[in-house]
């Protein structure tokens, strides 16, 4: 899952080496915290949060077979 988030974000940003995904586990849910270079924040959020929304759609769908609920936190 961490690798998937990394893969999705990589071609969207100018500084792919500064993508960070941290995982935190809480009661019954997995929280993935995505951090990118400050200049790239806009690129992963997109106009009206459109890119952020599609990243979440893809990540949640890919994680639908796991028992834990997944949350994706951006910045």
């Amino acid at each position: 899952m961490k690798a998937l988030i990394q893969t999705i974000v990589e071609p969207l940003v100018d500084h792919p080496e500064e993508i960070q995904v941290n995982v935190k586990e809480e009661s019954g849910k997995m929280i993935y915290h995505l951090t990118v270079h400050p200049e790239d924040v806009g690129k992963v959020i997109g106009k009206n949060g459109r890119i952020a929304k599609v990243i979440r759609t893809v990540v949640y769908a890919a994680g639908s077979d796991t028992k834990k609920r997944i949350y994706l936190d951006i910045m």
């Binding site: 459109r50 929304k53 599609v54 990243i55 759609t57 769908a61």
Partner: peptide
């Protein structure tokens, strides 16, 4: 999901 992938 397909639309999201398409947009990405």
């Amino acid at each position: 999901t397909l639309n999201a992938i398409q947009y990405l």
